[in-house]
Each structure stands twice: as C-alpha cells, then as structure tokens.
Simulated scan of single mutants.
Amino acid sequence: MKAAIAVAATLMLAGCSSHGVVASDPTHCAKPSADQELALNMADDMANEGRLYASLANLERLPEDLVQVRLRKARVLRLMGRSEAEPLYRSLLGTCLAADGEHGLGQLAAVKNDNASATEHLERAAKMAPTEGKIRNDLGVVYLNQKRIPQARFEFMTAMELQQSDALAALNMVTLLIYQDNWKQAAELASMAKLNPQQIADAQARAERIRGSAPNAATSQANRLEEVVDASSGAVK
C-alpha cells in the first residue's frame, strides 16, 4: 500500500506498479526457459520491494534478446529516472509486448507533462490490451490532467471493474469527484475502497492542482474533506 500511495503522490499512475506482461501478439516472442523465468520473477520481487539496483543487476545476467528481459529493464530504469528506459520500451513495439512498450512510453511522456504524447501512446496501448486495468487507469490520469472529465471517468470506471483489488483507480476517481465538487460520491467511494485519510488528502491536493486553485483559500473544501475522511475512517484498518 505504501508503494501505491507513493505512486499516487506523483502522477497517480498505476504503471509504476506491476510487471504484468500484456501479450498483443504471442507469436513474435520466444518463451523464457524455466531458469530464466525464475530469474525474471526474482527481479520482479526485488523491484516491487524497492530494490531497484539489485533487480537491475539480476536482469543483467539474462539475454537482452528476450523481450521479457527488456520490459523489466525498462521498468526498473524508468523508476530510477534513467533515460535508457525509452529505447528499451521502443524496442518492444512490434513484438508480443507492444502494448507494454506503448504503456511505458506513455508513462515516460506523462512524467514530462507531455500529455499529448502520453495520450497517443496510452490510447494505442489500450486498443492493444483493452482489459489491462493499469493501462486504462493511466490513460484516465492523462485525460484528467487535460480536464477531459467524461473520458477520464470512463477509464477509471473501467479500471476499477477490471482490477477490483487495486485501489489506485478508485483513488483517482475520488480525485475526479472532488475536482467536480461531488463530495458525497467521493465519500462513498473512499469508504468502499477503504482509502485512508492521507490518500484522501492527496486526492484533494491533486484535484486542487488540476483545478488551479490555492489550497489555503479553500476553507469550505477543507471542511468537506473532513467529511470524506470521517466517512471512510471506519473502513480503514
């Protein structure tokens, strides 16, 4: 959960999260051996634990002609903020992991606040892998950054239904609802998703940034935020 909150505090993007492999055309990719699969899983575990350098070191032992290796390397390098991530993501285009490549390129563009490029990459990724909730969530974030509210709502709703155990899309949806001053629905969703007070405060801060309002000038919004926290606090363990 701490990792999810950290992601939410930056761009609310889910893609920094999972190592999920989305196969848009499986015929173009060789399958790793059992030993290679074990090494990939170990590298994934290390990355998910925040041990990025150890993860990268383990990936360096594997052949880079495997697209699965390049995907993991790209993810780790992106989390490190290294420019080498982009060419690795681009090398996945035209392979069975093309959707992952487009997704990663979209994430990189979003970090640079290049919403136009991020939208293009993430829309292509969503067409290739329409049932991948993390892609749909990230596309929703980019739409929300552009104040394309109906499109953002559609993507967040889709992501929530596709990945019901992942609270990140719900957190983004709460942000959207607060942006719209729909505090009642925000409170209901925060309670249902078991969001904690800090997550709700982060959602409000992000909504204010998108709206362009100053946090200190929103006394009534602060009061409403307390109502949302009160509504969800009983669900927080």
Rank of each mutant, 00 (worst) to 15 (best):
R136Q: 13
R51C: 11
P32E: 06
L13A: 01
T175C: 02
N182D: 06
M160N: 01
S91V: 08
V141L: 07
E161M: 08
L62E: 06
I149Y: 04
A126R: 01
E84R: 09
N172G: 01
V69I: 09
A125N: 03
E132P: 05
L168Q: 11
G133L: 02
A125T: 11
A43W: 00
V21D: 13
A186L: 11
M160W: 05
R72H: 13
K134M: 15
V69F: 13
R70E: 06
K73Y: 01
A14P: 02
A110F: 03
I149G: 05
V141A: 00
G106T: 02
K237V: 11
K237R: 07
A43I: 01
E155K: 12
D35W: 04
L105R: 08
K184G: 09
A3D: 15
V174F: 00
I135Y: 00
E60V: 04
A187W: 03
L66H: 02
R211W: 01
G101H: 02
A3I: 14
K184A: 06
M173A: 04
F156G: 00
S165R: 09
S18G: 04
L108Y: 06
H121D: 09
L139H: 12
E37Y: 04
K2V: 15
A169T: 12
V141E: 00
D44P: 12
Q199V: 11
L122K: 06
Q199A: 09
L38W: 09
R90N: 08
A167I: 14
A118E: 00
L56S: 01
S220Y: 13
T158C: 03
R124D: 12
L59R: 00
N223C: 08
Q180A: 10
A201P: 03
A190V: 10
R153H: 05
A99N: 15
P215W: 05
A217D: 09
K147R: 11
F154H: 10
M160F: 09
L11A: 11
R72Q: 14
C16S: 15
